[in-house]
Nucleic acid binder design. Sequence first.
DNA 1: AGGCTGATTCGAAAAGTGTCAAACTAGACG
DNA 2: CGTCTAGTTTGACACTTTTCGAATCAGCCT
Lengths: 125, 125
Amino acid sequence: MPKQATPLPHTVLGGDTPCCPPLAQQRLPADVATALAPAFKALGDPVRLQLMSMIASAENGEACVCDLTPAFDLSGPTISHHLRTLREAGLVDAERRGTWVYYRARKAVLSQLAALLANTGQSPQ
Amino acid sequence: MPKQATPLPHTVLGGDTPCCPPLAQQRLPADVATALAPAFKALGDPVRLQLMSMIASAENGEACVCDLTPAFDLSGPTISHHLRTLREAGLVDAERRGTWVYYRARKAVLSQLAALLANTGQSPQ
DNA sequence: AGGCTGATTCGAAAAGTGTCAAACTAGACG
DNA sequence: CGTCTAGTTTGACACTTTTCGAATCAGCCT
């Protein structure tokens, strides 16, 4: 049961194209929904949502695990596991440089998710 | 049958205010992350994501359960359960009119979630 | 080499989730 | 009233997820 196999083949998310029309504009096909859901699922945990925010808002566009871990009341392995989840969801990239590992957000992916939820009608109520 | 027990007190999501600066702009506080995560979590299932899309893109802004259920290869109770999850996440509202129950999207909430993920930098890569 | 520190992987326990069938509730209608 | 249809709730089961400690891997440094 290899944890491999990116659930987000770049044929759906991560490219330069908008990936798909907004949720509210037309019905999302089943296969697209299946491809997109893991990204939302990854954001659906408070710890991972914070991690995502810390990474996306980091100084040089990247955050060191050594800075992320102590920000939570959780063990190293647990943080590492959450980071892996974000990675496998295609939301972040990891790079090792010497002793430390740095994570950076895949901003294009986040933008596409945003676009999916937007245009939902900004009329009041 | 009140749609109570909202884990998203309107102090965070659902109001007219943007709820919070974009994820990538500044670090999301723990309590805000805890309040927002359930909404993403609800969207993190392929069936619920499709339901959300069907509801948000429906003709008159609302969708009848009687139209949603047969669109899936799942039992009525299962669809009902997913709809409840969306409801409790604050993403949809339900209204019974006679025999049928209609769901409609809380567009303001979707917009806020979109705003949270947006402004993440539209520069390529 | 050997040891130190940062990070991931492994294995396991507790809690949570998705699904169904069966039982139930809400209206409509004869 | 009795019964039919639409939806929800309940109870159960398999599966997944969150979390940890222990073990491991990857680079430094002396």
